[in-house]
């Protein structure tokens, strides 16, 4: 641990140096330079968030938990899954923390550790990605039928009219489109899955 950091943490009145392993792990696994360690706990993010009301923790609270090393609680929080990727917090954050990208990282960590508490959102993402990996394009009808039948069959009757409208207006394709060089894409993704972002 760097000397300056020891002084800082002890100056803050802490009995022992902070354990920033979790914070660093998340920052490192996030695309770009996340500035996560720069968070000053001002709360602009939560105050800007259109869906904060449905979150277990505001982004600010979540980042405090990261700093405190509360791995279990962070990965179980629904916050990243409720994030709508609107980037309001990102452009307002005075420290330029890449909040939305940190949320993506936390989601992928929760999936890997199987800590999410509601299986709907990760399953939706995984079903979507499955279609893309198979065809190279998204396939809305396939995604919708598989996802709704598995997770919310009771919502289907209410949506029948809308779905029918989308189909008759040809806004939903009956068959998927496959890209020509799907083998190339598969080779790229296969290789990519063996790689991880480190410092």
């Amino acid at each position: 641990m760097a000397a300056a950091e020891t002084v800082l943490t002890q100056g803050a009145g802490l009995k022992k140096p902070e354990d920033l392993t979790l914070l660093r792990e998340v920052a490192e696994a996030t695309a770009g330079v996340s500035h996560l360690e720069m968070c000053i706990q001002c709360g602009t993010c939560g105050g800007s968030c259109p869906s904060a009301a449905d979150m277990d923790h505001t982004p600010r609270a979540l980042f405090a938990m990261l700093r405190a090393g509360m791995r279990e609680e962070v990965l179980r929080s629904n916050t990243p899954w409720i994030c709508v990727s609107c980037y309001h917090c990102v452009v307002r954050c005075p420290q330029e923390v890449h909040i939305a990208d940190v949320m993506y990282t936390l989601k992928s960590m929760a999936i890997k550790a199987k800590k999410y508490t509601d299986s709907k959102p990760p399953d939706f993402s995984q079903t979507f990605v499955g279609m893309v990996e198979t065809f190279g394009r998204s396939f809305e009808l396939g995604l919708a039928t598989r996802f709704y039948l598995t997770h919310q069959p009771l919502r289907l009757p209410g949506m029948a009219g809308m779905g029918l409208g989308m189909l008759t207006k040809k806004r939903m394709n009956l068959a998927p489109t496959r890209i020509k060089n799907i083998e190339q894409l598969k080779a790229i993704l296969e290789k990519a899955k063996t790689l991880e972002l480190t410092a």
């Binding site: 696994a29 990243p80 990282t105 989601k107 979507f128 893309v132 394009r137 998204s138 990519a192 991880e196």
Partner: peptide, 19 residues
């Protein structure tokens, strides 16, 4: 090919960016 929308980024970073 598809850009992965907001879905692939939540699952696996390097494949998402490679896509």
């Amino acid at each position: 090919n598809c850009c992965g929308a907001t879905e692939y980024l939540s699952i696996n970073l390097i494949p998402a960016y490679s896509l």
